[in-house]
Simulated scan of single mutants.
Amino acid sequence: MTDTPMKVGSLFEVRAEVTIAAPPEAVYATVSDLPRCGEWSAECNGGEWISGTPGAVGAVFRGENYRSREVVAWAPVVRGTWTTEAEVVAAQPGRRFGWAMRDSAGRAQESVWSYELSAAGPGAEGTALVHSFWMGRATEGIRGITAEMSEAERAEFFSAWAAKLASEMQATVERVKGVIEQS
């Protein structure tokens, strides 16, 4: 197995967007509160800050996750409950909050999730919330999942995983909208 990228460019670049009837500061306060993410995430059930100032650049969050057997059922991905660690890499109140997934040695990987916030477009009130995921080089986990796959199987996996991410991220921003607008 090699540590080189599995394909040229980004492995994943996925985004979802929604407009929320609340100011950017209120939306930021919600999405940067990672222990609450179980209220809107398809996989992360929540977790806890384990080091640093919660929500600040450099802080580390341990998330508890769950994935069912049906998710890309043919691929050898983690099923059931597992934990991850993420390091905050962007914390600009009212504008951007992002975190990079860490590898088993505690190093940030090219696997970055973020929320970008801006005033809603002309004639609209509230906040435009964009949820993004970017993966450059294959992470430790992706390398393990795809290590025994043929090129065709890898292509099928990346396509299926991108579709899964797009669907779940759109559902996530819709749930964030519901949480904020109902509070």
Rank of each mutant, 00 (worst) to 15 (best):
L165W: 09
T53D: 13
D33I: 01
R143A: 11
G144W: 10
R137L: 03
F157W: 05
G9C: 12
P5V: 14
V88I: 10
E110V: 01
G126Q: 01
A90V: 08
G38R: 05
S118T: 08
K7W: 06
G141L: 04
R107Q: 11
G94K: 11
F61M: 09
V78A: 13
F61K: 05
A147D: 15
S114G: 05
T146N: 02
D103E: 06
T2A: 15
T146I: 10
P76M: 12
Q92M: 00
D3Y: 05
G178S: 15
A105L: 11
G80M: 09
G98T: 03
G55P: 04
R62N: 07
A166R: 10
V88P: 02
E17W: 02
E174S: 14
V27K: 04
E87A: 11
S51N: 11
F158P: 00
S114H: 00
A162G: 09
T139P: 08
V179L: 15
V89G: 04
P23C: 13
W99D: 03
G136P: 06
A166V: 01
A56R: 08
W113A: 08
T4A: 15
E168F: 04
W74Y: 03
Q170G: 05
W134I: 11
F12T: 04
I20D: 08
Q170T: 07
G80R: 11
E168N: 15
G144T: 07
G144S: 14
V179Y: 15
G121P: 09
M1F: 14
T81Y: 15
A160D: 12
V173A: 10
V57E: 05
